[in-house]
């Protein structure tokens, strides 16, 4: 399994390999955040918005005294100090980035998995049962999709409060509408084939038709979609956190870190850009892999 994955990766185009690399780095952070992080998630270690290793003194006196700018990376700070500087409360940014990866990614994963579970179950159900079940579920989903997701989420979250379980359920439900659309469409295709008809004629239960006959044949597009949806969920959590309705402080998460440190930009401190770039990289990385997988699943080859 793992070796075949590695073989696939070796044959993949560079974009997909880059994506895998980004994912691997994030998975490492995800798995070993407490071991890797030099400080605790909420530990205050210094002043507000202290610069990180880039904080070389590049004034003219300094240059004439100590040679070129790049050679003066702030070694004193790096030794047991904040590599990426500190945030608006004087906490270590690197540690918070690592913990943030853990929180943001795990919640995004849980939400995506839940939304796929809901969306696929309903989608397969609608495709195999046809008739009024299909109509009922499809129309409900249409109604849900008619609302802009962000507004919908904002309303629900401000009413129901912003605890993590509520956050997970709300985003998963909203996202499952998209999953429902896709899984219903692919399942309808598979449902029309004769091997499903054979299973039907055999008298198989609905659950067998859905999970044993249809699911294995719809996996490639659904896995690719999983990658994309994961990105959207990730961005969505970040957006909600930025608006103050996502994960609540002091929990580290990339979206709220951007928000908390955004003010620093006015002082020429780029702390907010670190989590912002991290979000961008994860999104791009996952998209590259999902893209490659989608192309593979669609049977489009680029060997020629």
């Amino acid at each position: 399994m793992l070796s075949s994955l590695l073989r696939q990766i070796r044959k993949a185009p560079w974009s997909a390999r880059l994506g895998f690399l980004i994912i691997a780095i994030n998975l490492l952070a995800f798995a070993f955040a407490p071991q890797l992080a030099p400080f605790e998630e909420t530990e205050i270690i210094g002043g507000v918005w202290e610069p990180g290793f880039w904080a070389a003194d590049c004034s003219e006196e300094a240059l004439s005294l100590r040679g070129p700018c790049w050679s003066q990376l702030n070694h004193s700070r790096v030794d047991g100090k904040a590599w990426l500087g500190t945030d608006h409360l004087g906490r270590d940014l690197l540690s918070r980035m690592l913990y943030g990866a853990r929180n943001s990614i795990s919640i995004a994963l849980i939400i995506t998995a839940l939304s796929f579970f809901i969306g696929m179950t309903l989608g397969f159900l609608a495709a195999t049962m046809h008739g009024w079940v299909d109509q009922l579920v499809s129309r409900t989903v249409d109604v849900m999709m008619a609302f802009p997701t962000l507004i919908f989420a904002l309303i629900v979250l401000s009413v129901a409060g912003t605890s993590t379980p509520v956050l997970i359920i709300v985003i998963a439900l909203l996202d499952s509408t998209r999953v429902f659309r896709l899984s219903r469409a692919v399942a309808l295709d598979i449902e029309a084939t004769e091997y499903v008809e054979v299973a039907r004629l055999r008298g198989e239960r609905l659950s067998w038709l859905m999970w044993r006959e249809i699911l294995p044949n719809t996996l490639p597009p659904l896995i690719a979609e999983f990658g994309l949806r994961f990105c959207f969920v990730f961005l969505f959590i970040s957006a909600l956190s930025f608006l103050g309705l996502g994960l609540q402080p002091p929990t580290a998460d990339w979206g709220s870190m951007v928000k908390e440190n955004a003010g620093a930009i006015t002082f020429g401190v780029y702390t907010a850009l670190v989590p912002a770039f991290a979000i961008a990289f994860v999104t791009i990385g996952v998209n590259m892999v999902a893209d490659w997988f989608l192309r593979k699943a669609a049977g489009l080859r680029d060997e020629y």
Binding site: T193, E194, Y195, V198, L201, R202, G203, E213, P216, N217
Partner: peptide, 17 residues
Amino acid sequence: LRRIQMIYQMPDVALNP
């Protein structure tokens, strides 16, 4: 159901891949 069975024209789509 057991006693009536069916075989199809296209074996490609009659078997779950």
